[in-house]
């Protein structure tokens, strides 16, 4: 598709904040007809720029009071395959996000738990038992904000 113009970016801004809006409502927010909005949304989806929807849930209300970010360094890189580590870490339900990164750590994990005791259980029994685990650093999340980004 051609580079997104300002109207496309305005649509993305609206949908990023609220993807439950109807096409007509998105159109009203950016001053376009429903048909024109639909065409642009369709193009943004086909280009992979608008990549679906996600639910923003209040983790605490669902009983997940603790979110911890872990930086993980693999121990013996040469001996363990990255695929084995990735498969094993992805299979842990409490691990919600895994990023392969370059820098002080090899992987960045986002882990949820009911409380600190529950986190300790997940950490000791599941995380530390992963194949190739080396150095780990844990930081307990206190707050989080999503920003509009460069839209």
């Amino acid at each position: 598709m051609p580079d997104p113009d300002d109207t496309d970016l305005a649509i993305l801004r609206v949908v990023r904040a609220n993807a439950a809006l109807s096409t007509a409502a998105v159109g009203r927010a950016v001053g376009l007809s429903q048909a024109a909005t639909w065409r642009r949304l369709d193009r943004l989806r086909k280009a992979g720029i608008l990549a679906g929807r996600e639910l923003a849930l209040d983790l605490e209300a669902l009983g997940f009071g603790v979110t911890v970010f872990l930086g993980v360094k693999l121990a013996a890189k040469a001996r363990v395959s990255l695929e084995d580590f990735e498969r094993a870490v992805s299979a842990i339900p409490e691990v919600r996000r895994v990023d392969h990164v370059l820098g002080r750590y090899d992987y960045r994990l986002r882990v949820v738990a009911r409380d600190i005791a529950d986190f300790e259980r997940v950490f000791r029994r599941r995380i530390l038992a992963l194949p190739g685990m080396g150095e780990v650093e844990a930081n307990v999340m206190l707050s989080e904000r999503r920003l509009p980004g460069p839209l």
Binding site: R16, A51, E54, A56, L57, D58, A61, R146
Partner: peptide
Amino acid sequence: EAGVLRGVHGVIDWKALGYAVEVS
């Protein structure tokens, strides 16, 4: 209403939008 569901957000693929680099 109970605040359990705070919203439904559109996911933006920054790479597809031309932002190839993501840094933490």
